[in-house]
Each structure stands twice: as C-alpha cells, then as structure tokens.
C-alpha cells in the first residue's frame, strides 16, 4: 500500500528517538572536554624527540643525521648539527625545529630514524593564538623523556628498548677488540621492525 515505506521510516526514527535515551549503542555522542576518550596506543599526531636520562637536551637520542629532514614529505623538519669549538660534529642537533603547521603526521620520520630518536606524540591540544611562532616547535619543546614515551606507547617503547639494548650489546662486543674509545664507530642499528 502506498505510504507503508513512509510509516516504516517513521517507526525507525521513533525507535532511534527512544533508543537514544536508554541505549548507549544508539546514543554515541562523546562530549569531549568533559568526557575525554582514551586514545588508542597507536594514535599519532606530531613527532617529538626522545631523551634518555634527566637532561632534556644532553640526553637526546637524536644525532642530527638529517635523515628525517631529507625524508619528510612536506619538509617540516629543519636541523642544524651542533659542533664543538674545534668544529667537529658533536652528534647533537644545535637546532631541531619542527613546524607543526606544515607537518602532516605521516610518521615517516619515525620509520626512517635509525636511532629511535623521534617518535609520535599523542598530545593534541596544541591550539595557539600565535600561528607563526606558536606552531614552530624548537628542540626544547620537542624533547620529551623516555618515560613519557613509555607512558603513551608502552608496547612500541618496550620493543624499541629491546632493539636498543641489542644494538648496544653488539656495539660493545664490537668495540672491545677494537679501540675502546670509539663511540663514533657505533654503527646505526637496523631500522626497528614495525611496532605492533
């Protein structure tokens, strides 16, 4: 009969109207600032630099190799390697700037980094009134501790720790027969296997 389709539709909307009061499957709105959702472990937004130990700048794992700068598709990373007074590279970044207004959160920097020095952050409330300087993150803003990394990506961080420990053991084993004071000869470990 003409009109049955219309009546069926009305029944469905009525069902949803009633359902939205008692059925959490139907009422799906999450009111964000009051009800924060738990982010999945793999969630990513912008990169940060991992440091070991207590000193944010001195403990950076980054060795300013500029691989991420080269591989970054939108070219949002800018690195100047630090040099000591004699002009030799100290294997630390002097400048490590990341423009989050350009960054597209693709995670390629993380994948190509052989030192596990750059990882993806989960902190997303970074709105600022200053669209130029406020969104240009410097070395100091980017440095975050290994403990923080463990807190946001526990599984991945544990794997990274294993890989780093393995690399360290290998390096030590290699360094023993050779000159003991040659940290520069540490070979970069293989890129980490993709985390779970």
């Amino acid at each position: 009969m003409l009109g049955t389709g219309l009546l069926k539709g009305l029944a469905v909307t009525a069902k949803n109207f009633v359902g939205s009061f008692h059925d959490p499957k139907r009422y799906t709105t999450v009111e964000y600032p009051e009800q924060p959702t738990k982010l999945p472990e793999n969630y990513r937004n912008f990169p940060f630099l991992v440091f070991d130990g207590e000193q944010p700048i001195d403990g950076l794992r980054c060795v300013a190799c500029k691989i991420c700068e080269a591989e970054c598709p939108p070219q949002c990373i800018y690195i100047i390697p630090d040099r000591d007074e004699k002009g030799r590279p100290t294997k630390k970044p002097k400048v490590f700037d990341l423009d989050v207004s350009v960054c597209m959160s693709c995670q390629i920097c993380v994948e190509v980094c052989p030192f596990d020095a750059i990882k993806m952050d989960q902190h997303f409330e970074i709105a600022t009134a200053d669209r130029f300087n406020g969104l240009l993150l410097h070395r100091e803003d980017l440095a975050k501790s290994d403990a923080y990394y463990h807190s946001i990506h526990p599984t991945e961080a544990a794997q990274v720790d294993e890989i780093l420990a393995e690399a360290k053991r290998k390096a030590e084993a290699k360094a023993k027969p050779a000159a003991p004071a040659a940290p520069a000869a540490v070979k970069p470990p293989e890129p980490p296997a993709p985390a779970v």
């Binding site: 909307t13 949803n16 109207f17 939205s20 139907r26 009422y27 799906t28 709105t29 009111e31």
Partner: peptide, 13 residues
Amino acid sequence: KILGRVQNRPGPN
C-alpha cells in the same frame, strides 16, 4: 532537541 535525539545526539546542550 528532538532532531538530535532522533539522530542519536544530544542536540543543543
């Protein structure tokens, strides 16, 4: 509000 509830959202609140 009713449209919101029909569409499974709270409506203006």
